[in-house]
């Protein structure tokens, strides 16, 4: 497995544009979070805004950047024919996929941690100026606070799971552009489709099973009882999606010709 990991790491390093991928993830995530934090004020006590979720809002755009790495990591091999060399060198296909997933997820975890920590720091600096003060019931964002720590750590895990989902879809679809369309469609569209029904039970159900809205409930620190799904079960839903995609992709990889 070590040799497979090393091979995958070498290939990933060689991906065009990898040098700016990690900075792009951090910048996009932090800037979106900064914009969201700067635009919201808390004019009175009990204004109900969720400070942790607000400063981590950038994850909602950052996830697209994660797909930008994770999908080409596998579909690029199909595009150039590298996959045949890879599978000749690593005939155990599931081990190959596992090594690739480990490397991609590891890199996402590393860059995601930086992005999330920077977002929390930015929120800590910006939000008190917008009325998120002790007088209005908000202490400065701090990772020593249990729910904030859960939101931050959960956001990093969320990005890693999106990477796993992207990889799974990529290996199943093999065509990069189509795979990216499917991944981003899965992440963003359920929220829109939810708006098309006015049946609250259906809406709740859709929010509970769609990967992004369920997974992002990990960021909530306010009003948790009224969420469609709790923080950890929500992240579990995304994990199920990612697991299913990787498993399905792995089975297809084993069955199909490369």
């Amino acid at each position: 497995m070590r040799r497979e990991l090393h091979a995958e790491w070498t290939k990933l390093r060689g991906l065009p544009g990898l040098g700016w991928w990690a900075p792009a993830l951090v910048v996009v995530t932090v800037m979106t979070g900064v914009a969201a934090s700067a635009a919201v004020t808390c004019p009175w006590a009990g204004c109900g805004s969720d400070a942790a979720k607000l400063s981590l809002a950038g994850v909602q755009v950052g996830q697209a950047v994660v797909a930008l790495l994770a999908v080409p990591a596998i579909t690029g091999e199909y595009g150039t024919g590298m996959i045949r060399t890879s599978l000749a060198a690593m005939p155990r296909r599931l081990v190959f996929l596992a090594a690739k997933a480990a490397v991609v997820i590891g890199l996402t975890l590393a860059a995601g941690t930086v992005a999330v920590l920077a977002s929390v720091l930015a929120g800590r600096l910006i939000l008190p100026g917008n009325g998120f003060t002790a007088a209005h019931g908000y202490s400065a964002l701090s990772l020593a606070d249990g729910p904030t720590l859960r939101a931050a750590a959960g956001s990093v895990l969320y990005l890693a799971l999106v990477a796993a989902l992207s990889l799974g879809v990529g290996v199943a679809v093999r065509e990069g552009v189509a795979a990216v369309g499917i991944v981003l469609g899965l992440l963003y569209l359920p929220q829109v489709v939810t708006l098309m029904t006015n049946d609250p039970d259906w809406q709740r159900f859709l929010l509970q099973v769609s990967p992004a809205s369920a997974g992002l409930s990990i960021q909530a620190t306010v009003g948790i009882p009224s969420l469609p799904i709790g923080p950890w079960p929500g992240l579990g839903v995304l994990a199920a999606w990612a697991g299913a995609a990787l498993l399905g992709g792995g089975l297809l990889l084993r069955r199909r010709d490369a």
Binding site: A36, A39, Q60, V177, Y188, V192
Partner: peptide, 29 residues
């Protein structure tokens, strides 16, 4: 490069529309 172009197109057209209309962002944003 297809993937980069597709992700960029999504991030600038679809993602803002979804985030802004599907009630997940603050009003001013």
């Amino acid at each position: 490069r297809g993937v980069a172009a597709a992700v960029t197109a999504m991030v600038v057209v679809v993602v803002p529309a979804v985030l802004a209309t599907a009630s997940v962002l603050p009003l001013e944003v």
